[in-house]
Design a protein around this nucleic acid. Structure first.
Lengths: 227, 227, 227, 227
DNA sequence: GATGAATGAGCATTCATTCAT
DNA sequence: CATGAATGAATGCTCATTCAT
């Protein structure tokens, strides 16, 4: 991994953590209502049009209550992103479990399908979030989610019966992880019937396999998910 | 608690074209000064801190004059993005010329290096633009630039002495182009000494070769750029 | 749901008395804790940054409890000011006792020293209060404290062996009292080593003597405090 | 003077200068209208009730225009205070001219009358300003105005035919200046018929004379203003 | 054409105060 | 008696845009 490479300095984002984590049922409902309202607004309007007053109104709480829980506007989006990331990671972990017993290629494909599915899930607002609020990319919660993907790539290496030396394992893994994620995101963004996405998912699995192993899968490695 | 969220509706961006294309020298200078001031501000501050008043001040023209040329704030950024894209495409076209006579792998690597270089060029503000102003991704000028990359991928196919069947040429090309572009962007974003980026560029060339041909280059295809 | 809350009318100062005077020990402790927290906040931050929520938090009581004892924000500051004034008056009364047997000039000086000391005492927040919360000047408790000073001036007249005619005793006494108080306050506001203030206190005593008697003290009237 | 004594640290007041000084007639009118509206509001309501929106409304300009000229609320009050101070200093300088040929005591009395008059002038909002916005006391413009008063005190010393040694000239001058100013302010604050103030002004002149010289004026020094 | 003073809707955020529990 | 979640009117301020000069 190349994580030690310093990134371009970006302006500070201010406090992104909620002001308080609700413990009681009523508080939790209020907290959730605010995050939910934020998700709804993001789904319908642009990020730039997102206002705290509008969120509080949609959530059915007063603006004062909103600021009881969140220190600023960004922290609401951050909470929403963190929640989505949490769900994504959970889904991916589960998907990894599901690959047990699958042929290598089928495993890769399954993970890709699961990832795209999670990225598309309406309760996760990734498609909107990443198109409209690029600062989400820099959130810790988001970085962690990407780490899960990287692990997935490692997994392919480990499971593969034929070890291919990747001359620069760190660099290669980082690149593959970046590309895989961006490709999954692009697939997730596509509108239309699922058929087109299915083809792309399958091809993405093939390309990933090629990147990792430098060759196409042989018959025994191919066994598709549905078999 | 996140209720069903309907699909993202990308809000209209308003007019993105300049109000008028300057024909005379003085007008052209004013137009350029505004776009240039925008680039400078973007290079130093955040996109959200970009204001038309500040741009006009930095450009040394009055705010009224700015609105003589551009209908709104976004159109200035759009003009800047378009210009950057134009430069990127020109550079890539030139780079393709330069690959004539190179071994396949060396050609790919050269193109990648040229692309990363263009994305990093300070007069092109891609790094800020794409991180901070996501609407740039949807600009026609940007889409066209991506098309150039796709063509690059086609090129590899054509030049390759050993044709590999890509079962879904359209889908595969689209995926490779997407991934290649995002990886180049990520490399371009990295700060630090060029050595780091050089390794990543080399590895990206390898991975691209693998994706396209399903194998690593043999000795004769390998000849590096500098040889 | 809390129905519409009308804002405190801004023009008048509203009720300044506590809602209830605590009789039981526990209540008294709560009351004192609130006033004390107010004093602490005032000592550290600006008056404008003083909020009821912050006071209640620092006092370790809930905001609801705070409003059980005080009808509004100003009444807390008023209570604190009243307490400080009470202490100031007590101190001055004691200081007057201490002047018995002193030479006239020494007596004046002693009273001034005692006054400045009381104004500077950290538990009395006069320096902050009077600089930041001008309405304190109009509090009855504060007016009463000033009356004590006026009496002090009368005292000088009575004790003086040589009566000087003050053509307008009322006006003169009022003026001297005003000036003396403001000068003491200014001295109290000064930071730095006590030496500086000691000089000013001594000179203020001289000027006061001059104002009251129209002349400097003779040798026999001079005997300093420490003799 | 004791100006070298460090003052209690006070919270920063932010930028207090206007954003731009108007040069053209229209701009000047707008600038003046805003400051004037501020004065009017201060004369009628409390300082705490002073809002930028209300000022702009009363001035008949938009809130945006107000912020074109002033960076924040305090800077408007500061401009008003500075203007008032400028007028006060001008008036005092003129009053000093007017004392030429007057007997010493009459000169002192004249200066005091002039000062109280200027402090009371409705276009100078000192009475409201200093009661409601204590930060005015710390404005540079205000400090300069006080320096003028101090000079006045020096003047008395110089003009006096009988030099009295003030053992601590710096300290004494500072004290007298402080006391004189606060007394004049208190007189200016008094409501009611001018007769009462006239008496106080006369007595203040006597007390000042006493402080400075340690004695009452003799017949030849007394000659009143009107003679 | 060029200017820049003026606009004002709209934003994020605060905080004194209430009242159901 | 005590609590503290909830309220919402109100504030200071920004900035894209217009239009009279």
């Amino acid at each position: 991994m190349v994580t030690s490479v310093t990134r371009a300095a970006v302006a500070p984002l201010g406090e992104l953590e909620p002001r308080k984590r609700p413990r009681q049922a009523r508080s939790q409902a209020t907290f959730a209502a605010i995050v939910d309202a934020c998700a709804q607004m993001l789904a319908h309007g642009r990020y730039e049009a997102l206002t705290t007053n509008a969120i509080s109104e949609r959530a059915g709480v007063s603006i004062g209550t909103l600021y009881e829980y969140f220190p600023n506007r960004e922290s609401i989006v951050a909470a929403l992103a963190a929640e989505s990331c949490r769900r994504l990671v959970v889904r991916m972990a589960q998907a990894v479990e599901e690959t047990v017993g699958l042929a290598p290629f089928a495993g890769v494909e399954h993970l890709i399908r699961a990832g795209v599915g999670a990225l598309r899930a309406p309760e996760n607002v990734f498609t909107v979030l990443l198109k409209e609020a690029p600062f989400v990319l820099r959130l810790p919660a988001f970085q962690e989610a990407r780490a899960a993907l990287t692990e997935l790539c490692q997994d392919i290496r480990v499971r593969s019966p034929t070890r291919l030396e990747l001359p620069e394992p760190q660099a290669d893994t980082w690149l593959i992880s970046q590309m895989l994620f961006s490709a999954m995101l692009e697939i997730a963004f596509l509108e239309g019937p699922p058929g087109r996405r299915a083809v792309l998912e399958h091809e993405l699995a093939r390309l990933t396999f090629r990147m990792a192993l430098g060759r196409d899968p042989v018959a025994g490695e191919m066994a598709s998910v549905s078999e």
